[in-house]
Design a protein around this nucleic acid. Structure first.
Lengths: 260, 260
DNA sequence: ATCTCGGATACTGGATCCAAAATGCAACCG
DNA sequence: CGGTTGCATTTTGGATCCAGTATCCGAGAT
């Protein structure tokens, strides 16, 4: 039940989050998700996804199917299903016969993600504003309010998602919305980290955006959105650099203290 | 060959091509892919992907795991893996306890796909052209030549993919390239159908595009690309309309002939 | 003493087996 | 005669079991 046998495999672990590799956090996540799921596979998917996004499983960490299965309390099979889905989402990576690891994002890739998001989200905003209604503006205000109140990981993500789904009119543009969601997922883990550091004055741009949208002023709204994305992008890139240096330092200290 | 004859004969027929639902074509595909795969799961994925793109499995068709497993000659487990991956690609759709069906694209969604592709591919072209080299132009000419020679289903897709990967500098922009690939996959099945109907004068725009790229004329190249995508989009939308009406007629005839 | 080769161990990937849920048919009741 | 409910069949989804392969450690040879 515990992770005693896991110590053998920890040697390769490049970035050590904790000594347990996030096992405790993973079990807590499993507990939160335990209630009333239709299929175990998607439950495991949600758990692992939240674990990666929440930082319990860090980039580069190897994911042993049996360990994960035991921690969550299911068989290895739904774990495999979940890992396959996560691979398609770009969150984990399979090495041929050596299992799966949490995929890490290079700074260049992160920049790409935000540049594409800028392109797509501005397009989505333009399309959405061309068919804006007072009802949607009202709903947008509510959702923005809710989003700003949430502080915690999973709820925060959900609230923000709901807000942007309404802003971009996800109903009417499902493919575009799906693309945007995919990109947001790829950087989700880093955005959460950023939120914890310096996302306080964040709500202000939300408000400016909503007001521009409500007034029907397309170009100002686009500008606010673009600047917001650029600000987040720069923050994420900064955080990535910090992590890279930290990983370097961690590798050095691990080499010193670790097995020869 | 096998895929071509299958799609040529039954391309218009939307549901249940014959009574076997593309079983024969699927078995032949399985034979082609049978040699030397590292993992059975990805083999099944490739087979099913080619089957859907080639038209052997038509939109709306239900995919029974056991049937597919028997046809390909493997167990149900790798079939499940493949179906999960295909779901992530947006090619199939899971209904809760009722199995998977081949996803169909509504005309509105197809239009979305092409609008987003226009956005992304023009961006990719601009980025790529800002760092174009004579070597890449040369390679582009070769790949364009190869692509125009291929007529058959799978090779045709591969050749085109290689060409665009070089054109958009996929190496240097992996995320952007992945997005474009995803979108191309979603409409792949319809593009193949279109290719068979009226894609003859298609190579000409390729040449114009290459020449503009070689000359470093960005805006002309962008225009050629945009017009090309719009032309393909319109053709696909036309084909989708034709399929929709054919489906209607097919449903009527099936009702007349009496199902059981 | 170090490098290489061979065996043992452990992990992933696949197959078979089992249970749970949904659908369709049939029978019974209103 | 029609509707509703219950049972049986079908099919997905999960667990356990098995085999192939890669990694790691130790022993032997140079």
């Amino acid at each position: 039940m515990s992770t005693r046998s896991a110590s053998a495999g920890d040697a390769i672990e490049p970035i050590a989050a904790g000594s347990d590799g996030g096992a405790a956090a993973l079990q807590q996540l499993a507990g939160r998700h335990a209630t009333g799921y239709r299929s175990v596979g998607v439950m495991v998917y949600d758990i692992l996804r939240d674990a990666i996004l929440g930082g319990a499983l860090v980039p580069g960490q190897k994911l042993r199917q049996e360990t994960l299965a035991e921690l969550i309390g299911v068989s290895r099979l739904p774990v495999r299903s979940a890992l396959i889905q996560l691979e398609a989402d770009g969150l984990v990576e399979f090495h041929d016969r050596r299992g799966a690891v949490v995929k890490s994002l290079s700074p260049a890739q992160a920049k790409e993600v935000y540049d594409i998001r800028t392109l797509l989200e501005i397009e989505a905003l333009r399309l959405s504003m061309s068919e804006m209604t007072p009802e949607r503006v009202e709903r947008l205000r509510e959702l923005g309010q809710i989003a700003d109140e949430q502080q915690e990981g999973a709820d925060f993500v959900d609230a923000r998602t709901a807000f942007y789904a309404e802003l971009y009119d996800a109903e009417r543009h499902p493919v575009l919305w799906e693309m945007i969601e995919q990109l947001r997922l790829k950087v989700g883990r880093y955005v959460l980290g950023w939120r914890l550091v310096g996302g306080a004055e964040h709500g202000h741009s939300h408000e400016k955006l909503i007001e521009a949208v409500a007034a029907g002023e397309v170009e100002p709204a686009v500008t606010v959105l673009r600047e917001h994305l650029e600000r987040v992008r720069d923050a994420v890139l900064e955080l990535l650099d910090a992590e890279a240096t930290a990983a370097e330092a961690g590798a050095v200290s691990a080499r010193r203290s670790g097995r020869r």
